[in-house]
């Protein structure tokens, strides 16, 4: 159910502007990889290039290779729509579809693609996805209510349920807890630990405690200055990034002596 991603020499552009330069890394399956770094250093941009969401912005493009299962995701014969079905994504701000009920939101991946599904099949998918996102017990009695009526933390878990309902191999999370209170954050962090056994998870976070709590591997991105491209400074297992980093910049950042 989960796959390894190898990135080599990835340059990411917005038009002529080089936003991220020369990133190479390996993302291990069945593990949590965290991206940390200051604002504007390209973590989110890099994350979005892993499921070709980067290119939905006009003028945005990518050079280099992202290989999953021996296939280059940016190969000319690859359909970005298929990539996004395989590599799911959860966004910074919860964004349930406002016209859909809770159940319809979970089924959105199937419904929007007009996939035919028996009623029992759909019910099972809703239940298993919401169970997977630790939301089932809270919403099982009101599945036909609008998804936008849930609290922020519940909406974010609904979005996670929606993402895992299309059965991806990899789950990308772009600061999934930054709009949430500590209790909802804890619920999502527990969920990440649970999902780790089935999915490859990549998470962008500004919260270093969170990175150290949930991730197995941590990558530190940095930027030399405004207008310069962001770069991958160091990637290692989380324990050594936080206790014994090999780069001075990493140590300064994780110890709070940054800038």
């Amino acid at each position: 159910m989960s796959k390894r991603i190898d990135v080599s020499d990835l340059n990411i552009y917005y038009g002529d502007f080089l936003a991220v330069e020369g990133v190479s890394m390996a993302i291990e399956p069945r593990s949590v990889t965290a991206f940390i770094g200051p604002s504007g250093c390209g973590k989110s941009t890099f994350l979005r290039s892993l499921n070709r969401m980067h290119e939905v912005i006009p003028g945005a493009r990518v050079e280099g290779k992202v290989v999953m299962d021996g296939q280059d995701l940016y190969g000319s014969d690859i359909d970005p729509v298929d990539v996004r079905r395989t590599v799911g994504m959860v966004f910074q701000r919860p964004n349930p579809f406002p016209t859909m009920s809770i159940a319809e939101n979970v089924l959105a991946g199937a419904r929007l693609n007009s996939k035919r599904m028996r009623k029992s099949e759909a019910d099972d998918l809703v239940e298993s996805s919401l169970q997977g996102a630790n939301l089932w017990n809270e919403v099982k009695d009101r599945l036909d209510r609008p998804g936008a009526g849930l609290s922020g933390g519940q909406q974010q878990r609904l979005c996670i349920a929606r993402a895992i309902a299309v059965k991806p191999q990899v789950l990308l999370m772009d600061e999934p807890c930054s709009a949430l209170d500590p209790i909802s954050t804890l619920a999502i962090e527990d969920l990440i630990q649970k999902l780790k056994s089935d999915y490859t998870i990549v998470i962008v976070t500004h919260n270093m405690q969170q990175a150290s709590r949930v991730s197995d591997m941590t990558a530190f991105f940095n930027i030399a200055g405004t207008g310069k491209p962001g770069k991958l400074i160091e990637m290692s297992d989380t324990a050594s990034i936080f206790s014994n980093p090999s780069q001075k910049a990493t140590e300064d950042y994780v110890s709070g002596r940054f800038g």
Binding site: M53, G109, S114
Partner: peptide, 16 residues
């Protein structure tokens, strides 16, 4: 964000 949410579920642009 709604368009992106839909793309991220593997929904083609026209269906979105």
């Amino acid at each position: 964000e709604l368009r992106e949410a839909s793309y991220a579920l593997g929904v083609p642009k026209w269906r979105t």
